[in-house]
Amino acid sequence: MAEATHKRSPLADLAAGLAGASVPGRVSLAEEPFLAQIDLRGDAADGGFREAAGGVIGAALPLAPNTVAQGGRLRALWLGPDEWLIVGPEGSEGGIEAGLKAALAGRHVSIVDVSASRTAIAVAGAGAREVLAKGMGLDLHSRAFGPGRSAQAQLARAQVILEQVSGEPRFRLFVRASFAPYLARWLIDATAEYRIAGP
């Protein structure tokens, strides 16, 4: 019966706005709704924990700050010395949660489904860095940042978890659901200059 219920993403009403704001060849904006997100806490110094968690993810848990590990369909984002965000495709949160619980049974860990907490916005294209630079103090230049890197930062007036997905460049912004409409509007506004004839 749950399947019959309509899931509605935080940016459902702004999908057309994001699409319309995209400028081919320059920058594209789109919501990536319903990504599975599991917040994992555990002791990084515990090799057994790392091994068991890595086994579920399909890659070793990243231990370097602000990095991402990719394992099959799952990605693990380093959020803190004892915290990771495990990201998977839509609908996989139950499986990830169950897998982690089974693998980590008996350990002091925290496995919390936060999939509906945040939505994701993809910002891609040659102009993506420039758009983000309008509201973010981080250096996203290819010499300073790149695929496999992540950050927790402020974009405009919203906190985001940022990861670079590919060298295109393509970025993914995880933003809390209640802030998502604000951030989407900010992004649409920030790309406005590319939709007018230049001076």
Binding site: D39, V109, V114, A116, S117, R176
Partner: peptide, 11 residues
């Protein structure tokens, strides 16, 4: 041995 995670926006 306690972990706290915000789930304000989850629900």
């Amino acid at each position: 041995r306690v972990y706290c995670t915000s789930v304000t926006e989850q629900w």
